[in-house]
Design a binder for these strands. Sequence first.
DNA 1: GAATAATGTAAGCACACACTTACTTATTAG
DNA 2: CTAATAAGTAAGTGTGTGCTTACATTATTC
Lengths: 194, 194
Amino acid sequence: MARHSQIDEQRKKLLPIVCQTFSELGYRRTTTAELALRCDVRENILYRLWPDKKAMFLAAIDDIFQSRAEKWAEVLSDLPDPDARVERLIAYEAQHQGEFGFYRVIFTALAETDDDEMRDALIRMYRQFHKLVVKQIATGSEHEEGKLTESDAAWGLIGLATISNIIVELKLLGPRQRQQMFAMVANALVQDTV
Amino acid sequence: MARHSQIDEQRKKLLPIVCQTFSELGYRRTTTAELALRCDVRENILYRLWPDKKAMFLAAIDDIFQSRAEKWAEVLSDLPDPDARVERLIAYEAQHQGEFGFYRVIFTALAETDDDEMRDALIRMYRQFHKLVVKQIATGSEHEEGKLTESDAAWGLIGLATISNIIVELKLLGPRQRQQMFAMVANALVQDTV
DNA sequence: GAATAATGTAAGCACACACTTACTTATTAG
DNA sequence: CTAATAAGTAAGTGTGTGCTTACATTATTC
């Protein structure tokens, strides 16, 4: 008989490199040759792990969200108080915006939304992300007239994170200003919530 | 002697078609062949109007911002009262989000920010846009402690518009819900300003 | 230890697409 | 009228790149 396949292990091993590459270069500019180079394997080996380039990209989208969510859990692990959690999260995001090239994957994916699988991956990602944010800012209190629902505030925050990433990428503001802006707007949104 | 060049006129004539194409397909998926087809000319004619594909795209970015700004001016032309102007603008944007494929051009451009000219075009566009929004929400009153600056609120609104476009594209919310969300968050940001 | 299947290497195919070239036809200024 | 140049036509060309194929090597299990 023959040896056991280690395809799963290798997929898991190479995925971070694949993520990193797509994060730097986006979808189109990432060539399979470049991926192979960075993974230190030949192209056909990548094609044994995933059926095509798109599958590699979709795997990257999923993984990026996963690791982001894990990061949040880690950041919040020692904080029971909900208010402090939100505060910590805002501070964390204000500081680490744009560090992982997350947005670049998302933006290039958004340019490919004519493709159904790509759409679906994005939709899944945004839904999960929105849910996660709602959970973090949820207070359980009654909804007051004129205030934002938790869902609305969460979309606002996701939008804020998006433009904040763009600001980093284009250096539209200095780091200090950008952090300040992020914190101010985020707090305004959260404080207007319930 | 020979006839006069009509290059400028033709550029102006074809630009809307070029914009429309990039808006639908994004940068990479728009081929020069497709552009020529839609403009009803041969490819080499496009290359007499612009040096390369990138130049066509950059022209589209500039034009898209221009026409957006003009649209705003038109929407606001009959309103002198500043508060009412903001209100009208929010209502207008809430309703017309995603109509022009504006975001698609921007997102595909954001995937090409390794290119300096592309970066510069985006930076210019965002700066102008931000300035325009600030002007619309400016009240002239003193800045109060704990409230958002007009600049911060403007970034918040641009972020909101961005995620709102994404929501439209991915149908993450129904039109009614999305409009509601946009209006609520936008008002929260504006009311927290000064 | 040999059959079997996984892993690795190297080369290249096929196609899409940005851009060019060589040429013909229309227009107009002098 | 005609020389000169713009506008239009048609057919490439070269390159980048996603993906494949053919084959050699290695490891594992019975």
